[in-house]
């Protein structure tokens, strides 16, 4: 992967993180903040993918697989917390 592509991808991802962090900070309700936090998690998966390819890490696919399997737990617990334990 050339350095130009790396810079393009990482700057797009950082733009996404900054914008989502603004939404987490401002978000009128906790639901908005939780949605933006969800997006930050997907940016994390993307960044792990890019850096894993650049630094030639062998276990990058395992990291992505585990993240994809377990990532929704954070959103699930946030949703439960928003409802105050009611179902």
């Amino acid at each position: 992967m050339s350095i130009t592509i790396l810079v393009i991808v990482l700057s797009l991802l950082s733009l996404a993180v900054v914008v989502a962090a603004i939404r987490v900070w401002k978000g009128p309700s906790s639901g908005n903040s939780a949605v933006a936090g969800d997006l930050i998690f997907f940016v994390f998966i993307g960044a792990v993918a890019v850096l894993g390819v650049v630094f030639d890490i062998d276990s990058v696919m395992d990291i992505i697989l585990i993240s994809a399997l377990l990532g929704f737990l954070s959103v699930l617990s946030l949703a439960r917390w928003m409802q105050g334990g009611r179902r």
């Binding site: 797009l12 733009l15 996404a16 914008v19 939404r23 949605v35 997907f42």
Partner: peptide, 10 residues
């Protein structure tokens, strides 16, 4: 696409 989703948040 991830960046457009972030813009969509705004």
């Amino acid at each position: 696409i991830i960046a457009t989703a972030a813009i969509g948040l705004i």
